[in-house]
Design a protein around this nucleic acid. Structure first.
Lengths: 147, 147
DNA sequence: CGTAATTAGATTGTGCGCAACTTAAATTTG
DNA sequence: CAAATTTAAGTTGCGCACAATCTAATTACG
């Protein structure tokens, strides 16, 4: 076993890439990427959202989201429409096709859950919790922003 | 809390990006990326390696490694030299500068370890183990390669 | 031996992820 | 109200990650 396999960071990085590859394979028939799928999950569950909200939920900025949403729009799964009350805001909403996708892709969560190899929901939640704690903690590193 | 925060895949994805950002900040003075750092860790600990070996350890193919190694070489931290016994093979070795970096970056593992917020080495190892199991399990998804 | 199959590495092209910057609109404040 | 600040989203550029393809060298085997 190589040195990197003992590192927490590498085991995270490795697990994430394995998971993303699994999604990529499951999503291939629809030519969707993992991140595009996450945007759809948000829209299915929380309804239409401004770009900013989606960015906050996924922790992604407009540099990532703008082109990603353009691609989702060109696939005709979403529409973007500028808010009338505040024209800086762009609202993202599902098309009918995008809505239908929810049923077509309903098998994916279970297949991924199975892919994790976790024995039950409790252990999945335990893992999610420790990863949340790690994420929080990692974001609090002070480094040099002592200004 | 958004729907994505309950997903194992998203908590992984999120934790990985937080960790990578932490490395990026720590490595900024040397203009190294996280993946470039991983290559250096391998070379420091396992000595010169062919590209293929590095790729196996990091689970990266030449499409990622070739340009990455070119950039590490242009920074003069590594050298690439084609094997004489098998001219298909390219061996990657540290320059003196690359070797010196090991001491300069010696503070990083501890800062990251601290950043994880994990209380002790045992819990770090436990997390690493469950992530390894998840990675293995995720790679064994059959999907459609029924050929 | 010579052809077929395999292997190592590089190249090309796409899509993030993110920093830095731009534009335009809304809000704050003097 | 006007100038300054803040906010939302888009654009540009770089470096992965990865699929697909290519070249050249080595190995297998008929």
């Amino acid at each position: 076993m190589a040195i990197v396999d003992e590192m927490v960071c590498f085991s995270l990085y490795s697990a994430t890439r394995a998971t993303t590859r699994a999604y990529t394979e499951l999503l291939a028939p629809w030519k969707l990427t993992y991140t595009q799928y996450l945007v759809l999950v948000i829209l299915w569950n929380e309804g239409s959202q401004p770009v900013r909200e989606i960015g906050e939920m996924l922790q992604l900025d407009s540099g990532t989201l703008s082109p990603l949403l353009r691609r989702l729009e060109s696939k005709e799964f979403i529409k973007r429409q500028r808010s009338e009350t505040d024209t800086r805001v762009v609202n993202v909403l599902l098309t009918e096709q995008g809505n239908n996708l929810r049923n077509e892709l309903a098998h994916i969560p279970e297949q991924i859950a199975c892919g994790t190899g976790l024995p039950d929901i409790a252990s999945a939640k335990a893992l999610v919790n420790s990863l949340h704690r790690l994420t929080e903690s990692m974001q609090e590193i002070p480094t040099m922003d002592s200004k």
